[in-house]
Amino acid sequence: MLAYTFKRLLALIPTLLAASVLIFLFVHLIPGDPAAILLGDTATPEEIAELTHAMGLDRSLITQYFLWLGNVLQGDFGTSIFFRIPVLSVIADGAETSILLASMTMIWIMLIGIPIGILAATRHGSWVDQIASGGAMLFASIPTFWLGLYLILIFAVGLGWFPSSGFPSISDEGGLWNIRYLLLPSLTLAAPNAALIIRLVRASMLDVQREDHVRTARAKGLHPTKVAIRHVFRNAMISVAAAFGFTFAALISEAVVTETVFSLPGIGRLVVQSILRRDYPVIQGVILVIVCLYMIINLLVDLTYARLDPRVSLK
């Protein structure tokens, strides 16, 4: 297991290198000149040229890439053009919101997706199943920005139960209670993904239910609930675990929208704003961090997978 983990971590290096090239190229493909944007409408061409030179943006792309890569390898992601502070601190500022938002979302996904999926599978064909499957279908197809806006309209504007936007740090006044700012955004983000998990848990449990070993379990005289949880769900969990990796990828892109709708100071909104500001170093840094995270999460999923299924060996 340790050797396998180590090997997988080593394999991250070439992937990250390839990713860094792509990220760098795509960022520089974005039309627009950061110097012109920084200086505003009144800048003269000379001023723009001067700033472009000062930022090193007039050098060849290849030189720029290797300069950037060399710095990144030393832990220096550069300085934000817009904030004029190191990129890593910009990312760190957004990290609290994003990590809390992601964790709460994951908890919702599991709390909603798994039990309802199990219920739908065990009551297959009943009205419970109809409502669960229908609801899942509905929430899987609602766009996050639309759901977010409606949640704000109903629970923040209409009922006034929750704040509609922003997120003061939990180290600020209010402390842990500030989490309530993330309730609506995390529910928005969780809805389509929980819906997917409901459908997946239900489908894989129905698959497993037909397997011979489930009949063996019933022949032991086990209570149907025990059969459903200990035998059917435990096996269905294997394919559900694999899906969590994809769910994470979906979360990242949906977080960009959600954080924008709820004006959360997270990494998702940072990406959007940095693109608008042509803040190359920040865009590159954030995307590289996300790619890294994504690969680590998928490694964790694979390790969990092997734990869940003894037939998978990690050699």
């Binding site: 011979d212 019933r218 022949a219 005289g221």
Partner: peptide, 24 residues
Amino acid sequence: RREIMGAEMAMIFQEPMTSLNPVY
């Protein structure tokens, strides 16, 4: 009936390859 199943009356099946739970 469940009290009898597996206790007083037990069953073995045709497919030993698939009749055991693979994860336990």
